[in-house]
C-alpha cells in the first residue's frame, strides 16, 4: 500500500491531539475491526471462487443458467437505472429550482424505499399484481404475468434503487441556486439549452455518483427480487438469486464463482465512486470539500 497524504488531515500538534500511544491504539483497533469485517470477507469470496482452479471457475461462470442470470440482471439494471435517472433529474429540477409547499414532505417520501425492508418491497408488488392481488384477476384475464416473471423483477429493482440519483443531485441543485440558469434564459437560451449547457455541467459529478450507487443496488438486490421472482432457472433468476440456488444445492465453489462477479462489481463501484468523489472535490476546491456520502 502506498503512503498517501490527504489534504484533510492536520498536523498532530501538541495538546491538540491525543498522546501517540492513544493514537496508535485507536488506529490499530479501527484497522483490526475493518480487516475482520471488510477485508477478510472480500478476500474469502475470491479464495472460495478459485478453490478448484481456473477451469472450475470458468465452467461455473459460463454455465447457461449463470449466463441467463447475468443477462436478466443487466436487463433489469438497464431499465431501472435510466428510469430512476430521469426521475432523479426531474425531481431535483423541481425541488432545487422552485419554491412550493410540501417540499420537505416530498423529499421525505422520495427516501421512503430506503426505510422499507427489501422483503416488504417485494411483498407489496405481490399484493398488487399477484394471483390473489388487487389487480390479479384482471391480469389473469388478459394473460399478463408480472409476478414470477421479468416485469415483476424490473419493478422491484426500480423500487429499491428509486432514491439514489434523486438524493444525490437534489442537494447539489439546491446549493447551486438558479441565478446562472436565469441568466442563460434572459440571454435567450431555450429550456433544454439551459439545462444541458448550464445545469448539467454543475451537477455532472453528483449525477454520476448517484448513477453508480443506483446501478450497484439494482444489480445486487436480493430480498425484494427474491419475493417476486419465483426462482425459475434460466428465466427469472438474477445473479444474486443464482448464487443463492447454487449455495443451497451445496455447489459452494460455483456459488462463490458467480458471487465473485458481483464482488467485482462492488469493487469497481467503490473505485469509480472514489474517483468521482475526488473529481467532485477538485471541481469545488478550494472553497469547499466534497458532499457527504
Amino acid at each position: 500500500m502506498a503512503h498517501v497524504q490527504t489534504g484533510r488531515t492536520r498536523d498532530p500538534r501538541k495538546g491538540l491531539t491525543e498522546p501517540a500511544a492513544v493514537r496508535w491504539a485507536l488506529t490499530v483497533i479501527a484497522l483490526v475491526f475493518l480487516t475482520l469485517f471488510l477485508a477478510i470477507p472480500l478476500a474469502a469470496v475470491f479464495t472460495e471462487a478459485f478453490r478448484h482452479g481456473w477451469t472450475a471457475y470458468a465452467a461455473a461462470v459460463r454455465e447457461p443458467d449463470a449466463l441467463a442470470a447475468l443477462t436478466l440482471t443487466l436487463t433489469a439494471a438497464a431499465i431501472a437505472v435510466p428510469a430512476n435517472l430521469i426521475f432523479g433529474v426531474c425531481a431535483a429540477w423541481a425541488i432545487g429550482k422552485f419554491q412550493f409547499r410540501g417540499k420537505p414532505l416530498l423529499i421525505t417520501l422520495i427516501d421512503l424505499p430506503f426505510a422499507v425492508s427489501p422483503v416488504i418491497s417485494g411483498l407489496v408488488f405481490v399484493l398488487l399484481f399477484g394471483r390473489q392481488g388487487v389487480l390479479g384477476p384482471w391480469l389473469a384475464d388478459h394473460d399478463i404475468r408480472i409476478i414470477f416473471a421479468v416485469p415483476g423483477i424490473v419493478l422491484a429493482t426500480i423500487f429499491v434503487s428509486f432514491p439514489f440519483v434523486a438524493r444525490e443531485i437534489i442537494p447539489v441543485m439546491e446549493a447551486a441556486g438558479s441565478q446562472e440558469e436565469e441568466a442563460a434564459r434572459v440571454l435567450g437560451a431555450s429550456g433544454f439549452q439551459t439545462f444541458f449547457r448550464v445545469t448539467l455541467p454543475n451537477i455532472k459529478w453528483g449525477l454520476l455518483y448517484g448513477v453508480i450507487l443506483c446501478n450497484a443496488r439494482a444489480m445486487g438486490e436480493f430480498g425484494a427480487v427474491s419475493v417476486v421472482s419465483g426462482h425459475i432457472r434460466g428465466l427469472t433468476n438474477t445473479l444474486p438469486l443464482h448464487v443463492e440456488i447454487l449455495y443451497n444445492e451445496y455447489q459452494f465453489q460455483a456459488a462463490f464463482a458467480v458471487a465473485s462477479l458481483l464482488a467485482l462489481l462492488a469493487v469497481v463501484t467503490l473505485v469509480a465512486k472514489t474517483i468521482v468523489e475526488y473529481r467532485e472535490r477538485r471541481s469545488h476546491e478550494p472553497a469547499h470539500e466534497g458532499a457527504p456520502a
Binding site: 450497484a216 444489480m219 436480493f222 445473479l239 444474486p240 458471487a259 464482488a263 462492488a266 467503490l270 465512486k273
Partner: peptide
C-alpha cells in the same frame, strides 16, 4: 472500502 457493505450484494455477504 468503508462503503463495501453498500456495494456488495447482500446475498454475497450472506454466503461469505
Amino acid at each position: 472500502f468503508i462503503d463495501l457493505p453498500f456495494a456488495l450484494p447482500t446475498a454475497v455477504a450472506g454466503i461469505t
